[in-house]
């Protein structure tokens, strides 16, 4: 059996890669891709613990998480579209009207 620490490390690494993308990316679509990465990292975590406890709940829940991620991306794309219409650009660092 693969020790679960490896799975958790993989999940943490994937999460932090996604987080890196959120922190540095200017393009809104790439931002959304990074969010997807983070969601999938959580999925890996769920599956890993499903194996640890011998329970199917983790994997089932992972399925639902994926469906939710899809729904969220749909809305996210719609928001990016409205953002483009307002600011003529998908650059998130350009849309800074709600500031001090």
């Amino acid at each position: 059996m693969v020790p679960p620490q490896y799975y958790l490390l993989l999940s943490a690494a994937l999460f932090c890669i996604g987080l890196f993308g959120i922190l540095t990316r200017q393009n809104a679509l790439l931002f959304l891709m990074s969010v997807e990465l983070m969601l999938n990292a959580a999925n890996i975590n769920l599956v890993a613990f499903s194996l640890v406890w011998g329970n199917i709940t983790g994997q089932t829940f992972g399925l639902f998480t994926m469906a939710l991620a899809a729904a969220e991306v749909a809305i996210g794309i719609g928001i990016v579209l409205v953002l483009y219409r307002n600011f003529d650009d998908v650059d998130v660092t350009n849309a800074t009207t709600m500031r001090w």
Binding site: L8, A12, V52
Partner: peptide, 16 residues
């Protein structure tokens, strides 16, 4: 997170 995970005591893998 890596430090936490490596120092954590996880239960025995039961598997399917």
């Amino acid at each position: 997170m890596a430090l936490t995970i490596l120092n954590a005591s996880l239960p025995e893998v039961q598997g399917f």
